[in-house]
Design a binder for these strands. Structure first.
Lengths: 146, 146
DNA sequence: CCTAACTGATACTAGTTTACTATCAGTTAT
DNA sequence: ATAACTGATAGTAAACTAGTATCAGTTAGG
Protein backbone atom coordinates (compact mmCIF):
# COMPACT_ATOMS: atom_id res chain seq x y z
CA UNK A 1 0.00 0.00 0.00
CA UNK A 2 1.44 3.25 -1.07
CA UNK A 3 0.06 6.28 0.76
CA UNK A 4 2.02 8.82 -1.27
CA UNK A 5 2.92 8.84 -4.95
CA UNK A 6 5.94 10.58 -6.48
CA UNK A 7 4.10 13.73 -7.47
CA UNK A 8 2.91 14.24 -3.90
CA UNK A 9 6.47 13.63 -2.74
CA UNK A 10 7.83 16.17 -5.22
CA UNK A 11 5.15 18.76 -4.57
CA UNK A 12 5.75 18.73 -0.84
CA UNK A 13 9.45 19.19 -1.41
CA UNK A 14 8.86 22.00 -3.87
CA UNK A 15 6.53 23.76 -1.45
CA UNK A 16 9.03 23.48 1.38
CA UNK A 17 11.57 25.23 -0.83
CA UNK A 18 9.04 27.88 -1.86
CA UNK A 19 7.97 28.42 1.75
CA UNK A 20 11.58 28.90 2.78
CA UNK A 21 11.97 31.49 0.02
CA UNK A 22 8.64 33.22 0.49
CA UNK A 23 8.16 36.37 -1.57
CA UNK A 24 10.63 35.27 -4.24
CA UNK A 25 9.95 33.82 -7.68
CA UNK A 26 11.80 30.52 -8.03
CA UNK A 27 12.06 28.81 -11.41
CA UNK A 28 11.10 25.20 -12.06
CA UNK A 29 14.69 24.63 -13.22
CA UNK A 30 16.09 25.77 -9.90
CA UNK A 31 13.73 23.61 -7.82
CA UNK A 32 14.34 20.69 -10.14
CA UNK A 33 18.09 20.98 -9.70
CA UNK A 34 18.10 21.58 -5.96
CA UNK A 35 15.61 18.81 -5.16
CA UNK A 36 16.61 16.31 -7.84
CA UNK A 37 13.13 16.14 -9.31
CA UNK A 38 12.62 15.49 -13.05
CA UNK A 39 12.20 18.88 -14.71
CA UNK A 40 9.18 18.33 -16.97
CA UNK A 41 7.39 16.30 -14.35
CA UNK A 42 7.93 19.08 -11.83
CA UNK A 43 6.63 21.64 -14.32
CA UNK A 44 3.31 19.80 -14.58
CA UNK A 45 3.11 19.64 -10.82
CA UNK A 46 3.78 23.37 -10.50
CA UNK A 47 1.11 24.13 -13.09
CA UNK A 48 -1.40 22.32 -10.90
CA UNK A 49 -0.30 24.43 -7.95
CA UNK A 50 -0.90 27.52 -10.08
CA UNK A 51 -4.37 26.30 -11.09
CA UNK A 52 -5.14 25.71 -7.43
CA UNK A 53 -3.87 29.17 -6.49
CA UNK A 54 -1.27 27.93 -4.06
CA UNK A 55 1.42 29.72 -6.07
CA UNK A 56 1.45 32.41 -8.74
CA UNK A 57 3.73 32.41 -11.77
CA UNK A 58 5.73 34.99 -13.64
CA UNK A 59 6.81 34.39 -17.21
CA UNK A 60 10.08 35.31 -18.83
CA UNK A 61 13.59 35.69 -17.53
CA UNK A 62 13.81 35.92 -13.76
CA UNK A 63 10.34 34.35 -13.59
CA UNK A 64 9.13 31.23 -11.87
CA UNK A 65 6.60 30.61 -9.14
CA UNK A 66 6.03 32.30 -5.82
CA UNK A 67 4.05 30.84 -2.93
CA UNK A 68 0.92 32.87 -2.13
CA UNK A 69 -1.11 30.58 0.13
CA UNK A 70 0.05 30.60 3.72
CA UNK A 71 2.22 27.53 4.44
CA UNK A 72 0.24 27.06 7.65
CA UNK A 73 -2.87 26.55 5.55
CA UNK A 74 -1.41 24.06 3.07
CA UNK A 75 -1.96 20.54 4.39
CA UNK A 76 -0.51 17.35 2.99
CA UNK A 77 -4.09 16.04 2.81
CA UNK A 78 -5.04 18.77 0.37
CA UNK A 79 -1.97 17.98 -1.73
CA UNK A 80 -2.75 14.26 -1.73
CA UNK A 81 -6.29 14.97 -2.87
CA UNK A 82 -5.00 17.37 -5.50
CA UNK A 83 -2.53 14.88 -6.97
CA UNK A 84 -3.94 11.48 -6.12
CA UNK A 85 -7.65 12.16 -6.25
CA UNK A 86 -10.05 11.94 -3.37
CA UNK A 87 -8.87 9.87 -0.46
CA UNK A 88 -12.21 8.13 -0.29
CA UNK A 89 -12.65 4.58 -1.46
CA UNK A 90 -13.98 4.81 -4.98
CA UNK A 91 -16.16 1.72 -5.11
CA UNK A 92 -18.30 0.38 -2.32
CA UNK A 93 -16.96 -2.89 -1.09
CA UNK A 94 -19.14 -5.60 0.30
CA UNK A 95 -22.16 -4.44 -1.58
CA UNK A 96 -23.03 -7.96 -2.69
CA UNK A 97 -24.49 -11.17 -1.44
CA UNK A 98 -23.23 -11.24 2.14
CA UNK A 99 -24.75 -7.83 2.64
CA UNK A 100 -28.05 -8.40 0.91
CA UNK A 101 -31.02 -7.75 3.20
CA UNK A 102 -28.66 -5.91 5.49
CA UNK A 103 -28.44 -2.57 3.75
CA UNK A 104 -24.98 -1.95 5.09
CA UNK A 105 -21.98 -4.22 5.00
CA UNK A 106 -19.60 -5.25 7.75
CA UNK A 107 -16.17 -4.32 6.41
CA UNK A 108 -17.04 -0.98 4.89
CA UNK A 109 -17.71 0.96 8.11
CA UNK A 110 -14.35 -0.23 9.42
CA UNK A 111 -12.51 0.89 6.30
CA UNK A 112 -14.33 4.20 6.39
CA UNK A 113 -13.24 4.74 9.98
CA UNK A 114 -9.60 4.02 9.16
CA UNK A 115 -9.69 6.24 6.10
CA UNK A 116 -11.13 9.09 8.10
CA UNK A 117 -8.30 8.73 10.58
CA UNK A 118 -5.71 8.81 7.81
CA UNK A 119 -7.31 11.92 6.33
CA UNK A 120 -7.36 13.60 9.74
CA UNK A 121 -3.69 12.86 10.32
CA UNK A 122 -2.65 14.15 6.91
CA UNK A 123 -4.75 17.27 7.39
CA UNK A 124 -2.70 18.10 10.48
CA UNK A 125 0.60 18.03 8.60
CA UNK A 126 1.15 21.44 7.03
CA UNK A 127 4.02 22.83 4.99
CA UNK A 128 4.68 25.28 7.83
CA UNK A 129 5.12 22.41 10.31
CA UNK A 130 7.51 20.61 8.00
CA UNK A 131 9.57 23.76 7.50
CA UNK A 132 9.72 24.22 11.27
CA UNK A 133 10.91 20.65 11.71
CA UNK A 134 13.78 21.33 9.36
CA UNK A 135 14.62 24.40 11.44
CA UNK A 136 14.55 22.42 14.67
CA UNK A 137 16.91 19.86 13.25
CA UNK A 138 19.31 22.57 12.16
CA UNK A 139 19.27 24.12 15.63
CA UNK A 140 20.04 20.80 17.25
CA UNK A 141 22.86 20.33 14.83
CA UNK A 142 24.35 23.73 15.61
CA UNK A 143 24.09 22.99 19.30
CA UNK A 144 25.89 19.70 18.92
CA UNK A 145 28.63 21.26 16.88
CA UNK A 146 29.43 23.89 19.49
CA UNK B 1 -5.94 6.29 -2.36
CA UNK B 2 -7.24 2.78 -2.37
CA UNK B 3 -6.67 0.91 0.87
CA UNK B 4 -8.12 -2.37 -0.34
CA UNK B 5 -7.90 -4.01 -3.75
CA UNK B 6 -10.45 -6.43 -5.21
CA UNK B 7 -8.61 -9.57 -4.19
CA UNK B 8 -8.55 -8.44 -0.56
CA UNK B 9 -12.24 -7.64 -0.85
CA UNK B 10 -12.98 -11.09 -2.28
CA UNK B 11 -10.77 -12.98 0.15
CA UNK B 12 -12.43 -11.39 3.18
CA UNK B 13 -15.84 -12.31 1.82
CA UNK B 14 -14.72 -15.86 1.06
CA UNK B 15 -13.30 -16.25 4.56
CA UNK B 16 -16.50 -14.99 6.15
CA UNK B 17 -18.40 -17.68 4.26
CA UNK B 18 -15.85 -20.32 5.25
CA UNK B 19 -15.91 -19.20 8.87
CA UNK B 20 -19.69 -19.44 8.93
CA UNK B 21 -19.41 -22.99 7.55
CA UNK B 22 -16.48 -24.11 9.66
CA UNK B 23 -15.61 -27.80 9.37
CA UNK B 24 -17.13 -28.11 5.90
CA UNK B 25 -15.40 -28.21 2.53
CA UNK B 26 -16.85 -25.52 0.29
CA UNK B 27 -16.00 -25.44 -3.41
CA UNK B 28 -14.70 -22.38 -5.22
CA UNK B 29 -17.74 -22.63 -7.49
CA UNK B 30 -20.12 -22.33 -4.55
CA UNK B 31 -18.33 -19.33 -3.02
CA UNK B 32 -18.07 -17.73 -6.43
CA UNK B 33 -21.81 -18.07 -7.00
CA UNK B 34 -22.93 -17.02 -3.54
CA UNK B 35 -20.61 -14.02 -3.34
CA UNK B 36 -20.62 -12.96 -6.99
CA UNK B 37 -16.85 -13.20 -7.31
CA UNK B 38 -15.24 -14.14 -10.64
CA UNK B 39 -14.57 -17.90 -10.50
CA UNK B 40 -11.00 -18.12 -11.82
CA UNK B 41 -9.92 -15.05 -9.91
CA UNK B 42 -11.33 -16.55 -6.74
CA UNK B 43 -9.53 -19.82 -7.40
CA UNK B 44 -6.17 -18.01 -7.44
CA UNK B 45 -7.07 -16.26 -4.23
CA UNK B 46 -8.03 -19.55 -2.56
CA UNK B 47 -4.77 -21.15 -3.69
CA UNK B 48 -2.90 -18.40 -1.88
CA UNK B 49 -4.93 -19.13 1.25
CA UNK B 50 -3.95 -22.78 0.91
CA UNK B 51 -0.25 -21.88 0.53
CA UNK B 52 -0.54 -19.73 3.65
CA UNK B 53 -2.25 -22.55 5.56
CA UNK B 54 -5.35 -20.57 6.37
CA UNK B 55 -7.45 -23.22 4.64
CA UNK B 56 -6.87 -26.81 3.48
CA UNK B 57 -8.16 -28.23 0.23
CA UNK B 58 -9.70 -31.49 -0.86
CA UNK B 59 -9.65 -32.52 -4.50
CA UNK B 60 -12.36 -34.28 -6.46
CA UNK B 61 -16.12 -34.34 -6.19
CA UNK B 62 -17.43 -32.93 -2.91
CA UNK B 63 -14.09 -31.22 -2.42
CA UNK B 64 -13.21 -27.58 -1.93
CA UNK B 65 -11.56 -25.69 0.87
CA UNK B 66 -12.08 -25.77 4.63
CA UNK B 67 -10.97 -23.10 7.04
CA UNK B 68 -8.33 -24.37 9.50
CA UNK B 69 -6.91 -21.21 11.04
CA UNK B 70 -9.07 -19.78 13.80
CA UNK B 71 -11.16 -16.84 12.47
CA UNK B 72 -10.17 -14.92 15.60
CA UNK B 73 -6.56 -15.16 14.48
CA UNK B 74 -7.07 -14.05 10.89
CA UNK B 75 -6.70 -10.28 10.66
CA UNK B 76 -7.48 -8.10 7.69
CA UNK B 77 -3.92 -6.73 8.01
CA UNK B 78 -2.48 -10.17 7.35
CA UNK B 79 -4.76 -10.55 4.32
CA UNK B 80 -3.78 -7.13 2.96
CA UNK B 81 -0.11 -8.01 3.30
CA UNK B 82 -0.74 -11.39 1.69
CA UNK B 83 -2.52 -9.94 -1.34
CA UNK B 84 -1.20 -6.41 -1.66
CA UNK B 85 2.34 -6.81 -0.41
CA UNK B 86 3.80 -5.22 2.69
CA UNK B 87 1.94 -2.20 3.96
CA UNK B 88 5.19 -0.32 4.33
CA UNK B 89 6.18 2.40 1.94
CA UNK B 90 8.41 0.77 -0.61
CA UNK B 91 10.75 3.60 -1.37
CA UNK B 92 12.09 6.13 1.05
CA UNK B 93 10.69 9.53 0.35
CA UNK B 94 12.54 12.71 1.08
CA UNK B 95 15.90 11.08 0.85
CA UNK B 96 17.31 13.87 -1.32
CA UNK B 97 18.62 17.38 -1.15
CA UNK B 98 16.40 18.90 1.51
CA UNK B 99 17.48 16.15 3.85
CA UNK B 100 21.18 16.19 3.11
CA UNK B 101 23.28 16.88 6.20
CA UNK B 102 20.23 16.01 8.26
CA UNK B 103 20.35 12.21 8.13
CA UNK B 104 16.59 11.92 8.52
CA UNK B 105 13.87 13.64 6.57
CA UNK B 106 10.87 15.59 7.77
CA UNK B 107 7.92 13.98 6.01
CA UNK B 108 8.96 10.37 6.36
CA UNK B 109 8.53 10.01 10.15
CA UNK B 110 5.03 11.44 9.80
CA UNK B 111 4.09 9.00 7.07
CA UNK B 112 5.58 6.15 9.06
CA UNK B 113 3.47 7.11 12.07
CA UNK B 114 0.28 7.19 9.99
CA UNK B 115 1.10 3.89 8.32
CA UNK B 116 1.70 2.25 11.67
CA UNK B 117 -1.71 3.45 12.81
CA UNK B 118 -3.36 2.04 9.72
CA UNK B 119 -1.61 -1.29 10.22
CA UNK B 120 -2.66 -1.37 13.87
CA UNK B 121 -6.29 -0.70 12.98
CA UNK B 122 -6.38 -3.38 10.30
CA UNK B 123 -4.71 -5.86 12.64
CA UNK B 124 -7.61 -5.45 15.06
CA UNK B 125 -10.22 -6.40 12.46
CA UNK B 126 -10.50 -10.19 12.41
CA UNK B 127 -12.73 -12.50 10.42
CA UNK B 128 -14.35 -13.55 13.70
CA UNK B 129 -15.31 -9.96 14.47
CA UNK B 130 -16.79 -9.46 11.03
CA UNK B 131 -18.82 -12.66 11.34
CA UNK B 132 -20.11 -11.49 14.73
CA UNK B 133 -21.13 -8.18 13.24
CA UNK B 134 -23.21 -9.97 10.66
CA UNK B 135 -24.83 -11.92 13.49
CA UNK B 136 -25.59 -8.75 15.44
CA UNK B 137 -27.23 -7.18 12.44
CA UNK B 138 -29.39 -10.26 11.95
CA UNK B 139 -30.49 -10.15 15.59
CA UNK B 140 -31.46 -6.52 15.35
CA UNK B 141 -33.40 -7.29 12.23
CA UNK B 142 -35.27 -10.15 13.91
CA UNK B 143 -36.05 -7.90 16.84
CA UNK B 144 -37.44 -5.19 14.61
CA UNK B 145 -39.61 -7.68 12.75
CA UNK B 146 -41.23 -9.09 15.87
C1' DC C 1 -14.23 -47.95 -14.45
C1' DC C 2 -16.31 -43.96 -16.33
C1' DT C 3 -17.49 -39.38 -15.62
C1' DA C 4 -18.64 -35.10 -13.51
C1' DA C 5 -17.15 -32.06 -10.04
C1' DC C 6 -13.40 -30.73 -7.96
C1' DT C 7 -8.23 -28.70 -7.15
C1' DG C 8 -3.09 -27.64 -8.95
C1' DA C 9 -0.40 -24.93 -11.69
C1' DT C 10 0.55 -21.58 -14.81
C1' DA C 11 0.18 -18.56 -18.91
C1' DC C 12 -2.16 -14.84 -21.00
C1' DT C 13 -4.52 -10.20 -21.49
C1' DA C 14 -7.13 -5.67 -21.48
C1' DG C 15 -7.35 -1.55 -19.10
C1' DT C 16 -5.59 1.77 -15.79
C1' DT C 17 -2.16 4.18 -13.28
C1' DT C 18 2.45 5.86 -12.49
C1' DA C 19 6.22 8.36 -13.64
C1' DC C 20 7.91 10.38 -16.59
C1' DT C 21 9.54 12.83 -21.67
C1' DA C 22 8.81 15.94 -25.63
C1' DT C 23 7.22 19.73 -28.26
C1' DC C 24 5.79 24.10 -29.59
C1' DA C 25 4.01 28.57 -28.57
C1' DG C 26 4.21 32.79 -26.06
C1' DT C 27 6.55 36.14 -22.47
C1' DT C 28 10.04 39.20 -20.53
C1' DA C 29 14.59 41.19 -18.70
C1' DT C 30 18.88 42.57 -20.43
C1' DA D 1 17.68 39.80 -30.43
C1' DT D 2 18.02 36.17 -27.37
C1' DA D 3 18.19 33.36 -23.46
C1' DA D 4 15.59 32.06 -19.61
C1' DC D 5 11.33 31.48 -18.34
C1' DT D 6 5.96 29.71 -18.29
C1' DG D 7 1.44 27.72 -20.87
C1' DA D 8 -0.57 23.92 -22.79
C1' DT D 9 -0.80 19.49 -24.28
C1' DA D 10 0.59 15.00 -26.42
C1' DG D 11 3.11 10.83 -26.04
C1' DT D 12 5.08 6.65 -23.70
C1' DA D 13 7.32 2.66 -21.11
C1' DA D 14 6.66 -0.04 -17.17
C1' DA D 15 4.03 -1.69 -13.47
C1' DC D 16 -0.20 -2.88 -11.45
C1' DT D 17 -5.13 -4.39 -11.36
C1' DA D 18 -8.53 -7.43 -12.35
C1' DG D 19 -9.42 -10.58 -14.47
C1' DT D 20 -9.61 -15.08 -18.31
C1' DA D 21 -8.02 -19.55 -20.22
C1' DT D 22 -6.01 -24.00 -20.37
C1' DC D 23 -4.45 -28.39 -19.24
C1' DA D 24 -3.32 -31.81 -15.92
C1' DG D 25 -4.46 -34.61 -12.04
C1' DT D 26 -7.87 -36.29 -8.14
C1' DT D 27 -11.99 -38.44 -6.22
C1' DA D 28 -16.95 -39.88 -5.06
C1' DG D 29 -20.80 -42.14 -6.92
C1' DG D 30 -23.36 -44.85 -10.20
Amino acid sequence: MKLLTKNTDYVVRALIVLAMKRGQFISAREISKSQNTPYQFLRQILQKLIQNKIVVSKEGIGGGVRIVKSPSKISVLELIEMFQGNLELSDCMFRNKICQNRKTCVLRPEIKRIENNVALEFSKITIEKLVKKIGEKDEKKLYRNR
